[in-house]
Nucleic acid binder design. Structure first.
Length: 163
DNA sequence: GCCAACGTTGGC
DNA sequence: GCCAACGTTGGC
């Protein structure tokens, strides 16, 4: 490490939001998991995959419950292992099996995340929409379906202040 | 359950 | 390279 290029390093996002349907895997499941850690398998979207590839250990993650009542940010996790191949892409019995992905050049990656905390109360999507400071959030964009998305430092700070 | 928005696939 | 068809996401 020299003393150059700190500006590039600081431009990399350090905050993220990841969606999960609580009926499949909730923040309570994460809190109960072995080592309170899980591998975030099953992402099959290139943009979401690329965001995971750019994550670093220690990055912070908003845990979001989609297809929930109400949909809400429910807590925080952190990245504990950087991207590596998602084993489910090679598992014929798995719902996320991808016959076009070859082990020599895996198409899909995942990261490991660890539970940090559950908010005392969920922050529903409606509530976030009412916050002028969050107007630019990827989550709030019309038609936004991205399951892994960057969060700015300002958005992160504001959401924590609401929680 | 409905359906709008989005991403991917494949014919041409 | 265009675009229609299809499958999926996810709020409502």
């Amino acid at each position: 490490m020299g003393k150059s290029k700190t500006s590039n390093a600081s431009a990399r996002p350090r905050y993220w939001l990841m969606k999960s349907e609580p009926s499949a895997f909730s923040i309570d499941d994460l809190a109960r998991a072995s080592k309170q850690t899980t591998c975030w398998e099953g992402v099959r979207n290139y943009q979401a995959r690329n965001f995971m590839r750019s994550m670093a250990v220690g990055d912070r993650v908003l845990f979001y419950h989609s297809n929930a009542d109400p949909p809400a940010v429910v807590g925080i996790a952190e990245v504990v292992r950087t991207a590596y191949p998602d084993p489910t892409q090679f598992d014929k019995a798995d719902i996320h099996y991808d016959p076009d992905s070859v082990p020599a050049n895996p198409r899909w990656d995942l990261v490991d995340i660890k539970y940090i905390k559950k908010f005392s109360a969920p922050l529903p999507l409606d509530r976030l929409r009412g916050e002028p400071k969050l107007k630019g959030m990827v989550l709030l964009r019309k038609g936004s379906r991205l399951s892994v998305q960057p969060v700015t430092a300002a958005e992160w700070a504001h959401i924590l202040s609401l929680a």
